[in-house]
């Protein structure tokens, strides 16, 4: 019996008086691809940000690959993790952001090689060779020497995916990676994700409003509303026969807005 690679146990998160996540538990199995859907403000992005250690939780525990993420053991007690523990835990996780967040003062290839060289001590030629392979995979080998400002949104996001992959994380988090793109550029980014799903067996968590893509990409879909999982199941079931009326209402709204399944 394989163990979950991510165990989220009863976590809560508030921003001020607003409770964004409320006693949430999720297990993610290795190689599993999970789609998180739901109205904005439902807490799905916050989950990814917590896993990337960009936000701290108020309550609960998270284990990644058998190790505590937000806590560490000290004298037999679990205490909040210090920066060293967090840095260690972060190695297992990569994230791609809605707004790309490329480093604008670095060339495309330097964006990808910077972290492996600085954080893993990879020799520059080796890091560059690996970066070129990744750029090749996302179809941007010819842009290696270019600057981010010269790229379209879709190209930027493909570089951001390559940058995250360069650190060889065990879990990849995709946070609305096509939401900031012009409609005609969405496809090129989704096709890179599709390629990842068919060519690798990385564990991936995808927050998206692209329901059609979520349907094909994910093994399991979680529908969120107000910080809780309202419904979860196989994509076919969630999208074709949603049981909960809030899921039905959400999907109806999304479809009316022109998204396809």
């Amino acid at each position: 019996m394989t163990k979950p690679i991510i165990r989220i146990k009863n976590i809560s998160k508030s921003f001020g008086a607003v409770r964004v996540l409320d006693g949430l538990s999720i297990d993610v199995m290795p190689k599993e691809r999970l789609a998180l859907i739901g109205p904005s403000g439902s807490g799905k992005t916050t989950i990814l940000r917590i896993l990337m250690t960009l936000e701290r939780i108020n309550d609960g525990h998270i284990e990644i690959d058998g190790e505590q993420l937000c806590h560490m053991e000290r004298a037999g007690q679990l205490v909040p993790a210090d920066e060293k523990h967090l840095a260690n835990a972060r190695q297992k996780i990569g994230m791609v952001f809605q707004h790309f967040n490329l480093f604008p003062h670095k060339s495309v290839i330097d964006n990808i090689t910077l972290a492996p060289i600085l954080t893993k001590g990879v020799a520059k030629p080796i890091a560059e060779k690996r970066a070129m392979e990744l750029l090749d995979m996302v179809g941007l080998a010819d842009k290696a020497k270019g600057m981010p400002v010269e790229l379209s949104g879709g190209q930027k996001q493909r570089v951001a995916i390559a940058r995250a992959l360069a650190l060889q994380p065990k879990v990849m988090l995709f946070d609305e990676v096509t939401s900031a793109l012009d409609p005609e550029l969405v496809e090129e980014v989704l096709s890179v994700l599709w390629q990842l799903s068919t060519e690798t067996d990385m564990t991936m968590l995808l927050v998206t409003h692209e329901m059609g893509f979520a349907h094909d990409f994910a093994h399991r879909v979680l529908f969120f509303d107000r910080g809780k999982i309202v419904e979860e199941g196989k994509p076919g079931d969630i999208f074709r026969q949603p049981k909960h009326e809030r899921t039905q209402a959400f999907l109806k709204k999304i479809l009316a807005a022109g998204h396809r399944i």
């Binding site: 920066e83 952001f97 967040n101 995250a164």
Partner: peptide, 27 residues
């Protein structure tokens, strides 16, 4: 410098010192 730059640095696992030196100050 946008918060996204700090967050991307964290996602790339850069230390605070590396983030200042390689990402924030040059920009």
């Amino acid at each position: 410098i946008s918060r996204g730059q700090w967050e991307a640095s964290k996602a790339c696992n850069l230390s605070i010192g590396q983030t200042w030196r390689h990402i924030i100050i040059p920009q």
